[in-house]
């Protein structure tokens, strides 16, 4: 089996894997970081969104081997020193979740949006969430949370 090496949340990891291993399965089953979810497994729902070399990507539609040598960030890497990332804090504050299944993907996707667009309007946030499906909230509070987090992150 080939060996894959990548940096996940700042730590270098290396494993022998079957080339068929999806990045999301590598993260969950090999690294036991189960915050990244498998929802549809067909790149529609966005529950598996992680960052690969700084941009949001769907980990169910990527092989672990494709992330060889890459910097990967998952939801577990966002909080620093026990303090929630402003995006996580805003989702909590504005009730941007109900069952919570889509939330890790939503948060990772939203962080990518705010990194490239520090002050997104409501329309831009809704457009950006095209690849993230939530079946509980109706999106309203998610949009609100992202706009508040953006303000917080602008400082």
């Amino acid at each position: 089996m080939p060996t894959v090496t990548m940096t996940v949340n700042g730590q270098q990891v290396s494993r022998d894997v079957d080339p068929r291993t999806l990045l999301v399965d590598f993260i969950r089953n090999e690294l036991h970081l189960t915050g990244t979810h498998v929802g549809c497994d067909t790149s529609q729902c966005g529950a598996c969104v992680v960052h690969v070399d700084g941009t949001s990507q769907k980990a169910c539609t990527m092989l672990a081997m494709q992330a060889d040598g890459c910097e990967v960030a998952t939801i577990e890497g966002l909080a620093k020193n026990g303090e929630l990332h402003p995006m996580q804090a805003a989702f909590k504050e504005h009730h941007g979740l109900q069952c919570g299944f889509c939330t890790p993907g939503m948060v990772m996707s939203a962080v990518d949006l705010v990194q490239r667009n520090p002050d997104p309007d409501e329309h831009e946030v809704r457009e950006w969430l095209e690849g993230n499906i939530c079946r509980c909230t109706g999106y309203h509070n998610i949009v609100k949370a992202i706009q508040h987090a953006a303000k917080e992150m602008r400082g």
Binding site: S43, G46, V49, T55, S56, Q57, K58, T61, M62, S109, D112, L113, W128, E130, G131, N132
Partner: peptide, 9 residues
Amino acid sequence: IGDPQVRNR
């Protein structure tokens, strides 16, 4: 094309 994550890849 697609959604932001598809466009990133």
